[in-house]
Write a protein that binds this DNA or RNA. Structure first.
Length: 420
DNA sequence: TCTGGGGTCCTAGGACCC
DNA sequence: TCTGGGGTCCTAGGACCC
């Protein structure tokens, strides 16, 4: 049996946890750049605020209903996520952290009848130790556990746990779940399947395997197995090595000058390099892409990207910034209003398996020492205390983040003060 | 005025090889 | 009229996830 643990309205719940005055008040957390709603508390959902709605479209609703609005604070959410995962690991040895607010637990070694009780205990621990509400779904496969979790959220709000182990419970779950709410069915497949008369997960189960395979590739076939209770999705004990690392942001305002965009590119390149060093990996390629705002139909549009090969796989910020800058100069065209730029490092290899270049002129030892010093001071004194001059001091490209809460758990100067 | 960011996997088709 | 057969590798694009 597999459990899926999911934090309810995670970002909104974290914000509320640090500010109990928000109890009962609707909360919305906005995406980077304060662009659209990416998390809502139950109260905000009840107001009809949909996931992903642009902020400017709901401004009236937000004001009228006294909704608490936050810019997203990923440092804070990441730190709270670590706490939750740590508690889960104290209960069950096999935990797969699936996303910032979700984890699968392998319960195959727990006695059958105890699963419900175990889930209740886990839930109580998380609530008492982190203050965050969670839901737990338990079923024979990952896909069914996802469905059970959803069921717990919708129909068993008080206990927050649903176990679907018997055939009757699983059938009930399959009939309850609409086809578009099945894990792995997105908008495209949902429409396609509805067109063929499938309404619920139970309907899909009746479809011939060959037909599903033909119309929905092996992904659909795997899904079918999972619904039948046969595990078809691999268990990933530790996060597999990343194949790409991407850092990209929309600008706070549209930009036209390459000088401003260069600063963003340098900063994104440095972030990619830092992420590589954190994973002890190096990349052989740097890809830079640049685009105008596709929503502005009245503007001339331009999209471009280019991949630069590095002479030797690297995770040195200096070098990656250099190649990313070259790439930008190759794709930049004057006369456009740019919205977004991104840097992606590709063809990633472990740091200790690098093929050295015959004509390599860089002093890689020195690079490594410099990066070590950079990372150390930035860890000790806060992110970006030391940065490259190429990042610039102008903040034209910086994102908007107008309603950011403090980093309660990761910055000593943001720690909460309690008067007694 | 204002529309996120970061990933994965799969398939088809083209280039190229013998 | 008729124009081989079998591989591999790479890329672009589409679908999905949170």
């Amino acid at each position: 049996m597999i459990a899926l643990v999911d934090c309810n309205n995670f970002y909104a719940s974290v914000e509320r946890m640090f500010n109990p005055a928000l109890k009962g008040r609707p909360i919305v957390v906005l995406s980077n750049n304060d662009g659209c709603a990416i998390a809502r508390s139950d109260e905000a959902k009840a107001l009809g605020i949909e996931m992903g709605t642009p902020a400017f479209k709901i401004r009236e609703t937000l004001a009228k209903n006294n909704v608490a609005i936050f810019s997203s604070n990923y440092t804070l959410y990441g730190s709270m996520s670590e706490r939750v995962m740590k508690i889960l690991k104290s209960f069950v040895p096999k935990v797969e952290v699936y996303s910032i607010d979700e984890a699968f637990l392998d319960l195959s070694n727990f006695p059958y009848t105890d699963l419900f009780e175990l889930a209740i205990k886990i839930r109580e621990s998380i609530t008492s130790q982190t203050g965050l509400p969670i839901s737990i779904g338990i079923a024979p496969t990952k896909t069914l556990a996802k469905m059970a979790n959803r069921y717990a959220k919708k129909c068993k709000k008080e206990v927050g746990v649903h176990v679907a182990s018997s055939k009757e419970r699983i059938d009930e779950l399959l009939q309850f779940t609409e086809i578009g709410d099945v894990w792995g069915i997105g908008p495209q497949y949902r429409q396609f399947l509805k067109g063929h008369g499938f309404k619920t997960a139970a309907d899909l189960l009746k479809a011939p395997e060959e037909w599903v395979r033909k119309e929905m590739t092996v992904m659909g076939q795997r899904l079918l197995y999972e619904l039948k209770g046969i595990n078809a999705i691999e268990w990933e004990d530790k996060a597999p090595a990343k194949k790409n690392i991407c850092t990209a942001r929309s600008f706070g305002a549209l930009l036209t000058h390459i000088a401003d965009i260069s600063q963003a590119v340098a900063s994104h390149a440095a972030t990619c390099a830092r992420k590589l060093r954190k994973d002890n990996t190096c990349a052989k390629e740097v890809h830079v892409f640049l685009q105008t705002n596709p929503y502005r139909k009245e503007d001339k549009q331009y999209m471009a990207g280019i991949t630069m090969k590095l002479p030797v796989a690297s995770n040195c910020s200096t070098e990656i910034i250099k190649y990313a800058g070259k790439a930008l100069r190759l794709i930049f065209r004057p006369g456009f209003q740019y919205l977004k730029v991104g840097v992606m490092v590709q063809d990633i290899v472990p740091q200790n398996q690098i093929q050295l270049g015959l004509f390599d002129t860089r002093d890689r030892k020195k690079d490594a020492m410099l990066m070590q010093a950079l990372d150390n001071s930035n860890t000790t004194y806060g992110k970006d205390i030391i940065r490259y001059g190429t990042h610039g001091y102008g903040k034209k490209w910086k994102l908007r983040s107008a309603m950011l809460s403090p980093c309660f758990t990761t910055r000593i100067d943001h720690i909460m003060k309690v008067k007694s």
